[in-house]
Nucleic acid binder design. Structure first.
Length: 549
RNA sequence: GCCCCCGUAGCUCAGUCAGGAUAGAGCAGCGGUUUCCUAAACCGCGUGUCGGACGUUCGAGUCGUCUCGGGGGCACCA
């Protein structure tokens, strides 16, 4: 059982025996900002004071007196100013945790609170009409970490990429490709237009198509350009997959929109109609999403008889429901946040429970060269791709930058800063702590210093820096759990940075490998535990944990 | 016009979901630390209208209303 649970239970019992109503207020454990306030605090008495209209300090006093914590868990209980109850962890608990880190290793911090429930995170899902751009890189970083986090706390989580390989845009892409092919072959007629995708990568694709091939496609498809379209889509999709691989992001599945047509799309439509949420106006079938709080009703079938993207998306989510996911998370691009209400409406009509569908919006990424924003225009074909970004700054740096901030907040990505292989670059700070410990263990080995797992007397770790480091290690499972349950990867980067700081401070003040075999062994145990937790954190972030730098 | 996101230190951001203890980091700037396990490190130096106003509260960066500024969305496109 986690220490938080033990403490929560003790506090709940204390509330009971002191005669305070249980469940009236939520049990909250916090990490105090100031060291003097102990390791854990709870404002429970303050919350109760509000409900009971009594003096919070008195309540805190009564709870503190009624509470009995295990001696090997809590060393002291204090009440403070407005009504806080501050707890100090027992050294025995910190030591026990150190042994747990050693024992569980890569699994330290994982849990089973997900209960094996099957869930899915859909992310990136960029249209296969061009290379991935920078905002997709951010989505890739964030989405993959959310999958890692959910798995780590016991969910059966999968990552999926929805491939929109169907519809107008594919046809438009085909037209642009045909233009480039005919351009190369000198077959262009004066009135032909380049179409929606003038960028250079289409020209490159055109180079791989022979005159014979083009002639066959033209004969078969005429103006629809479907063969050009599917050729381009497949080629682009392959580079997308390669680029994601290069970025170290792996999907469990690429789901193609084309396989939804026409059967599942028809089925989805029928469900909306059968449930009475569809009507026809001006020849188009509408979905009354306004009944679920959307701004306006949305078209499902256009008056030309073709399904909209939205209907396809409903069919797609129908498959998610049928594939047995107990909940699904969609990472949406910043320009798609307006789709959330209609998707919630759709999920509801499909019969999903209230919280089945969750949308997370990934914020904008603005690339900066120092203070200057880099202007990008997708139409003009001027943009920096994900590939170019990670070739420029490296995958670890790119990922870390994307994961340092809250998912939905806009991000200025400073290329100048990211390129620097120096202390200005936060990812190296954390990696350096890991490499430094690895180096110390090598040194210890040379000197014959041993980290004896069983017999080491860890009670000698009594310095302030040692204690703080141990406390922080103890909080790791709590941080992972919080990051997973709130879908906030940036908590991991914050945690890693703090842990690195605490280690560097400890390292600076105390020599690890000395003539004192007992002390060396104890400090090595602490250092190695820190390395393990740094590695676990970096692993969740998908960032390398180097043994030397 | 309606809706969503953002507005916290010179810069980039945590903290807002669960209201509480003197609002925190990093970077930039200035000064210091190495006979000793990696100085990609450590230590010291911060007078912030938490965009603004009003409200709820014993208590508001956090909740509510209004407002200002920045971005985005409001297609029978995907």
């Amino acid at each position: 059982m986690r220490f938080q649970e033990i403490i929560e239970r003790s506090l709940t019992r204390a509330l009971e025996s002191a005669g305070f109503p249980e469940g009236e207020v939520k049990m909250i454990l916090e990490k105090p900002r100031l060291k003097e306030h102990g390791d854990i605090c709870t404002p429970i008495a303050l919350s109760l004071a509000k409900v009971l209209k009594r003096n919070p300090l008195e309540i805190a006093e009564l709870i503190a007196r009624a509470a009995s914590f295990p001696d090997d868990m809590v060393a002291s209980v204090e009440i403070a100013k407005p009504g806080y109850i501050n707890l100090k962890l027992a050294h025995a608990a910190l030591v026990r945790n150190l042994r747990d880190v050693d024992k569980y290793g890569d699994d330290y911090g994982s849990s089973d609170i997900g209960g094996g429930r099957k869930c899915q995170v859909e992310y990136v899902s960029a249209n296969p009409t061009g290379p991935l751009v920078v905002v997709s890189a951010r989505a890739a970083a964030v989405g993959s970490v959310i999958v890692n986090l959910l798995r780590n706390v016991g969910f059966d989580a999968e990552g999926e990429y929805y491939v929109n390989d169907y519809g107008n845009q594919i046809e438009a892409l085909g037209k642009s490709l045909r233009f480039r092919v005919r351009e190369r072959l000198g077959l262009l007629e004066s009135e032909e237009e380049i179409g929606a995708y003038p960028a250079g990568y289409v020209t490159e694709l055109a180079a791989g198509i022979s005159a014979e091939q083009a002639a066959r496609w033209d004969e078969r498809d005429g103006e629809s350009c479907t063969s050009y379209g599917s050729y381009a889509t497949e080629a682009i999709l392959r580079t997308i997959e390669e680029d994601l691989e290069f970025f170290g992001v792996r999907f469990d599945n690429f789901f193609r929109e084309s396989c939804l047509h026409p059967a599942l799309v028809a089925e989805a439509l029928k469900i909306v109609e059968d449930k009475g949420f569809a009507y026809t106006r001006e020849g188009a079938v509408h979905f009354e999403t306004t009944r679920f709080g959307d701004e306006k009703d949305r078209v499902l079938v256009k008056s030309d008889g073709n399904p909209t993207y939205f209907l396809g998306d409903i069919a797609y989510h129908l498959t998610k429901l049928r594939r047995g996911y107990e909940w699904v998370i969609d990472l949406l691009g910043p320009d798609h946040h307006g789709h959330i209400p209609r998707m919630k409406a759709a999920a509801s009509v499909l019969g999903a429970h209230e919280r089945w569908f969750e949308a997370l919006v990934v914020g904008w990424v603005r690339l900066m060269e120092g203070k200057k924003p880099i202007s990008m225009s997708k139409r003009a074909g001027e943009f920096i791709t994900m590939r170019e970004l990670i070739e420029d700054v490296g995958t670890d740096v790119a990922k870390y930058f994307f994961l340092m901030r809250r998912t939905n907040s806009p991000l200025d990505f400073d290329l100048q800063l990211a390129r620097k292989q120096s202390d200005e670059n936060p990812v190296f700070y954390v990696q350096y702590a890991h490499a430094r410990i690895a180096s110390v263990t090598r040194f210890a080995e040379e000197k014959g210093a041993v980290r004896d797992r069983k017999d080491t007397d860890l009670s000698v770790l009594s310095a302030a820096e040692e204690r703080e480091l141990m406390v922080h290690l103890m909080f790791y499972p709590y941080v992972v759990e919080g990051a997973a349950l709130s879908r906030e990867p940036h908590r991991l980067t914050s945690y890693a940075k703090e842990l690195a700081t605490l280690f560097h401070q400890f390292y600076h003040k105390h020599r690890i490998v000395t003539d004192d075999a007992q002390l060396s062994s104890a400090r090595l145990t602490l250092a190695v535990a820190t390395m393990q937790v740094l590695r676990n954190t970096l692993c969740l972030l998908g960032v390398d944990a180097p043994k030397s730098m």
